[in-house]
Simulated assay, not measured.
Amino acid sequence: MLRYCKMRLVQAREMLLVAGWRTLLRDIVYLNRVAVPVEIPLDSLRPVTDFTRPPDEAVLELSAELLGERRLVYRFRSRYLKALTYLGKGYRGFALVKGNTVAGDIWCADRPQGGRSCNHPDERWLGIECRPGEAYTFDMFVDPAHRGGNLAAALQNGTLHLLKKRGITKAYGFFWADNVPALWVHRTLRWHELQRVRATRLLLSRKLHVTSHGAA
């Protein structure tokens, strides 16, 4: 709990410095903001070669050993603390690494075939449920210093291919409808958009309901 509170405080300070008050407030307080749940079968992914990156970059799975020994470096301390928190909860993380620097990461909760449930709280308010062999992906972040050049698409597509190799057959996620870059990435990778939901949040609370309009 102490680590989580520390992470949230560091995250708020870093977001304020990088993006300003408006972005910070939009992240913690919103009214009827539209979320777009998405799904994708992993037998129909775009080839990794569609999003070629420089030879010193690679998508790999994160581990407590890699982070604990500081063999990988986050420019933002909040992302490092968040990674440790997520790993402690049993979530799996994947990163696009440039040298030993994490340029972006993404996380997932999966339910392996024959394994125990590792569901994420988002699944309930989004109206999705991961079955055995499926995964929910969440909290993708790309360092502003490395954005552009299809890095976000390469990170997400590379992660989905790694999940497929680990026996996952289908992935879910969501993006905010007002986040145009996220919309572009998900449509570029051919995610299927599900029934939209509206979210209202005051600090750490959320109240949600399914909207009457379907996928775009």
Score class of each variant (00 low, 15 high):
T52H: 11
W125F: 14
L126F: 01
V29W: 13
F51V: 02
F76C: 07
W107K: 05
R26D: 15
L17T: 13
G133P: 02
M7I: 00
V59G: 00
G104T: 11
D43M: 03
D139N: 11
E193I: 03
P132I: 00
G90L: 03
L2W: 06
P55N: 07
N179D: 05
R77C: 08
L202M: 12
Y80F: 14
P55S: 09
V10L: 06
L155D: 05
L81I: 12
P121D: 04
K89D: 11
A109R: 03
E129T: 13
W184S: 10
R206A: 13
V197S: 05
Y91R: 05
W184Q: 09
N32P: 01
P121G: 02
A153K: 01
P121E: 09
F76E: 15
A109L: 04
K98Y: 05
I128E: 00
Y91D: 02
I40D: 03
L25S: 10
Y30K: 10
Y136A: 00
R3A: 15
Q113W: 11
E123A: 04
T169I: 05
R13F: 11
D178V: 03
V48I: 13
R206M: 09
Q113E: 14
V73F: 12
L66N: 01
S44D: 06
N157E: 01
D27G: 13
P112K: 03
L67T: 10
G158E: 07
N150Y: 10
G20W: 08
R166Q: 15
G173Q: 02
C108I: 06
R166I: 02
L67N: 05
R190N: 11
R13Y: 11
G149A: 09
E39N: 04
R77L: 15
G127H: 03
V73T: 12
M1T: 11
H161A: 04
L183G: 07
L25N: 06
